[in-house]
Simulated assay, not measured.
Amino acid sequence: MTTCAYATFDDGPQHDDELALVLAAWRAAGIEGRAERWDDPAADWSAYDAVVVRSVWDYVPRRAEFLAWARRVERSARLLNPLAVIEANTDKTYLRDLPSVPTHWSSRGLPDWPEYVVKPAISAGARDTARTRDRDEAAALAAALEAGGRTPMVQPYLDMVETEGETSLLYFNRRFSHAVRRTPMLSAAATSADLARAETRTPAADQVELAERVLDTVAGPLLYARVDLVRLPDGSPAVIELELTEPYLYLRHDPGAPAAFTKALAELL
């Protein structure tokens, strides 16, 4: 029987509501799955046919340690997504090469925008992210990130995030599975519980075209990918993030998604 590890930051189902859903889908397909904390020194990763990186949501302040773990795992088991993908994707400077939301990468010379979003290039879940209308405050926030040795990202806040919303397109083994409209995490009413809240959405043709064009820039196998898009003021779609490391997959929003995820894993193995 094929055995796979589900790498997480905490193996309790209360911390990851997709864990039990995935393990059940794997079991139905003849894949024996087990949740393992990625930083558990007792875990034997070589005992698995594959290690699937999932809810490793505490990696951000420990990125070097996390990447060292991924290197060790890839020497003894199939790592999905692969190390090269994870290493590039955990630093959002990858957005420089994509048709993304306009981004200023310094605390100096900020563009004159009505409202700013400031965040570090290595972050997850809107951690250390701020929104302000004050250009000087935005510059100060970016400077504080630089002082801490972090690369700042300064972007315009887009009202379309709260009207049309962010659209996330989910792909398993590069095949489209489903899409959702995500709760805007920087809206005044948003809370941490909003991470998993979304509604099913049928993406427009231009969004699908952009998402697949972006995925074509990534070499190698991709068990999962989440492409987060928003529309710019001129109506064109742009990438907010390309999530290839530990994205929430919104599996409960599409009845066929757990099986599609499992089929993709079986294909790659």
Rank of each mutant, 00 (worst) to 15 (best):
R174D: 14
N173A: 12
G165Y: 08
E209F: 03
T202C: 07
V214F: 12
S192Y: 00
T167V: 07
V214A: 05
L222F: 04
A188R: 11
S168Q: 09
V208H: 14
P221S: 05
T191I: 07
A204P: 05
V161N: 02
R213Y: 05
R175I: 02
G235M: 02
L223A: 04
V214Q: 01
P203N: 07
P237A: 07
L186N: 06
F172R: 07
L195G: 11
A205S: 15
R231N: 04
T163M: 08
V227E: 08
D216W: 03
N173R: 08
L222C: 08
D194I: 03
H178L: 06
P233H: 12
R175D: 08
A204C: 11
V208D: 15
A193P: 01
F172N: 01
V230G: 00
E199V: 10
Q207A: 14
S236M: 00
P221G: 00
S187T: 04
R197Y: 00
A189Y: 04
E209A: 09
F172T: 15
M185V: 12
T217A: 12
Y171S: 12
P237C: 07
A204W: 12
E166D: 11
D216I: 07
S187C: 09
V218Y: 08
G235V: 04
L232C: 05
Y171E: 04
V230P: 00
V161I: 13
R182E: 03
E166F: 04
R226Y: 02
T200Q: 09
L223G: 05
A225E: 14
T167D: 02
S192W: 00
A204N: 06
A225M: 12
T167H: 13
V214H: 04
H178E: 00
S168D: 05
R181I: 13
A179K: 10
V208R: 15
V161L: 04
E162V: 11
E212R: 06
R201D: 15
P203T: 14
P237D: 08
L232W: 15
A225K: 11
L223M: 02
L170H: 06
A238V: 05
T200M: 03
L186S: 13
S236D: 09
D206F: 11
S177A: 06
P184W: 05
V214G: 01
E209I: 04
S236H: 06
D228C: 09
V208K: 14
L222V: 10
D234E: 00
V214W: 02
L232Q: 15
N173T: 06
D194M: 00
S236F: 00
D206C: 09
D234N: 04
R213K: 05
D194C: 08
P221E: 10
L229G: 00
A198G: 13
S236C: 06
G165M: 10
Y224S: 14
R213N: 01
E199C: 01
P221C: 03
A189S: 10
A188L: 06
V227K: 13
L170Y: 14
E162K: 12
D216L: 05
